[in-house]
Structures are given as C-alpha cells and as structure tokens.
Write a protein that binds this DNA or RNA. Structure first.
Lengths: 229, 229
DNA sequence: ACCTGAACACCGTTCAAGT
DNA sequence: ACCTGAACACCGTTCAAGT
C-alpha cells in the first residue's frame, strides 16, 4: 500500500490558461503542424480526452490561443498625436504577429471576438475618432491600417518561407533553379532587375522598411481626407 | 476471359493538371479541412499512393494549386493610367481570393515562385515603373498594394466566419451572447456604437467599400510621393 | 467533477510487388 | 512507367468506466 501513489490532489487540475499556454508554446516552436491535442495533453501529463473537459474541440483551443497573443499588442498612450499613436499600434501589432507567425492563418479563418481582440479595436477606434473620423469613415480608416499590418506580415512570412526552401538542399536546388531563373530573367525584365537589386538585402530590415513606407502612404491619405471635411 | 476488363489504356494516366484541378475543386468546396490525398485520389479513381508519382507530397500539391488560381487574376491593358491599372489589378486580385478563400492560408505559408505569381508581380512592377517609381520605392509601392489586397480579404473572411458562427445555433448562441454583448457595450463605447451602426449592413458590399477606401488612400499617398521627386 | 483507456474513423507517406 | 495494397505512425473526437 505504500507503493500506491498518492491520489493526485486538487491542484493537479488543469486550467484553460495552462492549456492555451502550452498550445501557444508549441505553435511558436513548430507551427500548426506540430500542434495536436495529444501533444498538448502529453505536455501537461494528461490524456488527450481530458482536454475535452475544458475545451469543446481543437478549434476552440485555437480561438483561445489567438486571443491570448492578441493581448500582447501594446496600446499607446491616449495623449499621443493620432498619427504617432496609430503608427505605434500598427508596429506593435506587427511585432506580435512576427513573434507568433501561426496567428496569421487563424486571423482569416477563426471568428475573432475575444476580449483582447475587442479591446484592440476599441483602442484603434478611439485614436481615429479623436483624430476626427466618424461613422463609416471611421470603420474604413481602422480597417485600412489593420489590413496593412496583416498583409505586410503575410508577405514577410512568405518571403521567409521562400528563402528557407532556397537554403535547405543548397546543392541540387541551386542547380535546378539555375535554368528556371534564366527563363525568369528573359521573360520578366522588371522582376529580374528587382531580384538582382534585392538578392542580398536582409529580409527583416527590408520588410520593415516597406512596412513603414506603406503605412506612411496610408496615413498621408487618411490625413488628406481629414482636411477635406 | 471475356469477363476480364480491358487493360486500362494509356490515356488513363494521370496528369498534374488533373490532380491540381481536383484539389482546387475540393478546396473551393470544403476548404483545407476537406482536402486529403486519399480524397483527391478517390475522385480520380486511383489509390492515394499513385499521386506520389506526380507530386512529392501534399505541400507540393498545394504550391501547384496556389499558382493555378493566381493565373485567374486579370492583368490590365498596358495603355491604362497607372492609378486605374493598379486599382483594376488589385480588384481582380481581390475577387480571385474571394473565389478561393483557402488561398489566403497558403499565401503566408508557402513559398510562392510559380510562373503565374511571377507574371503577376512583373505586371505590377511594370505599371508602377511606368508611373515613375524606381529602385527601392518600386518594391515598396507594389508591396503596399499587394499587402492591402490580402489584408483586406483576410479581414472580410474573418468577418464572414464570425457571422457564420452567429447564424448556426441561433437559439443558444444568442442567449449566451446577450450577456457578453452587454459587457462589450459597457466597456467599449466606441465599438458598441460602430457595432450598432454596422449590425445590418451586407458584409460583402461593406467590405468592398472599405477596400476601395483604403486603396484610394494608398494611391493618394503614392501619387504624392511621385510629385515630390 | 475530472480523468483514463480504449475505440472509431480518419490522416500523410512509404514501398514492395505487380503489370 | 505507372499503379496497387498493405503497412506505419500518426490524427481528432467520443464515451463508458473509474475515482
């Protein structure tokens, strides 16, 4: 009887927080591919079925994970200039997405009504309303900035994915790519020039530059609409 | 011996085109969830293993599907004004993404160097180069427009996903949502106002309006940069 | 109330073996 | 050259049964 292990006490109970914490950690490390209910359960020292006591299904777990990381976005001080505030919000949003690249997939797939998501749009609306936007223009202005953030991050991730396939298997890949690239150069003169000029830039800093460029264009356009009223 | 079926002739052979065609059809109808190698194979009257003769793995099949639908985007006439041409390209791009919502997931995940993807960026570069953009600004300007397209579609799809969960299970969902929505109204005044004003708009037309709004802001910003040189 | 263990109906991928 | 059939190592989800 001394051999029989103690009955697991009450504090061994899971919490939703622990589950989403483990899920986010796995997603960060290995992406959606690495995430399985069985894996999360194992990491918590529990059977897969146990998770279904706390969560209806995998999709719901993803919704929770999504809102959890949305909480990492920093809302700027209310006293700031609207352009600076909006830019700060966009940059913080972008940095969060780059820390958790798996989120991008969920952002177009999952309904997104968690508390952190709502707080974030409230913050954005407040900034733009303070600047003078109202009604339908207010919605459109906020959407414009948000859309740019997630579009830009999607492009950066795709770029990185491309670089990754080019780096793994450098021997054979480069040989096969050789002929393909020559045809590109012949049929796509503009692209060829830009590829040559961009071949050895740092993906991260160049992505950041493009992000800031487009954001500035957008804010200029918004400011112009504001003056027109 | 008369009962023995005829040996399948040569034309029974698969082609990559058929495979991606079936894959795209399944993805359009049921999304990534419905796509499996076994399902594609079955639809072609063949075993799952047979696909691996034409395609290295599921991921490669997705790359092919991605480039296939990118071919649907219409490149505008070269004679057009650059703003009109760019807007036409963006709108056609957007419409394609809405026809094939599953593409959005791949756009941030898959390397994207297929022939149609390249032709599309070549077209975009040509338009912007014709307008007067060059060097790093050229890259950034095209990225700005592309990012807006995919960001806007991502937002529209997320909106639709949210509406879908609100519609299915109307009884219980609305009851539970009642308390949640009241807290939203209390803690998020701006959001509450916008939700009330937007509650009965058509998602599609409103998304289109926001898309055009942001695109116009962006093009204004780009035009301003052009005048400054 | 909370978890296990086993089961069900699936997956992607590999590979000998056939034709 | 092209495909089958079977196998391997996985999945998400359910649910009686335990404690």
């Amino acid at each position: 009887m001394w051999l029989r292990p103690e009955r697991p006490p009450r504090d061994r109970r899971l919490e939703r927080e622990q589950i989403v914490g483990v899920a986010v950690a796995i997603l960060d490390a290995e992406g959606h591919q690495g995430l399985s209910m069985r894996r999360v359960a194992a990491e918590l020292g529990v059977t897969a079925g146990a998770l279904y006591w706390y969560v209806a299904n995998k999709n719901e777990m993803l919704e929770l994970a999504l809102d959890a990381v949305l909480g990492e976005v920093q809302v700027p001080d209310p006293g700031m200039d609207w352009r600076a505030a909006l830019a700060a919000l966009a940059h913080s949003h972008r940095r969060m997405l780059l820390r958790h690249p798996w989120v991008l997939t969920d952002l177009s797939t999952q309904p997104n009504l968690g508390p952190n998501a709502l707080a974030l749009t409230e913050a954005g609306l407040a900034i733009l309303a303070g600047a003078g936007f109202a009604d339908a223009d207010l919605d459109a202005a906020l959407a414009a900035v948000n859309d740019h953030v997630i579009g830009a991050v999607a492009a950066e991730l795709a770029w990185r994915a491309t670089m990754r396939t080019a780096e793994t298997g450098p021997g054979e890949w480069l040989e096969q790519a050789e002929g393909y690239l020559r045809r590109i150069r012949e049929n796509h003169p503009m692209l060829a020039r830009r590829m040559a000029a961009t071949s050895d830039v740092d993906v991260h800093t160049e992505s950041e530059r493009r992000f800031a460029f487009a954001l500035d264009c957008l804010l200029d356009g918004l400011a112009a609409r504001l003056r027109r009223r």
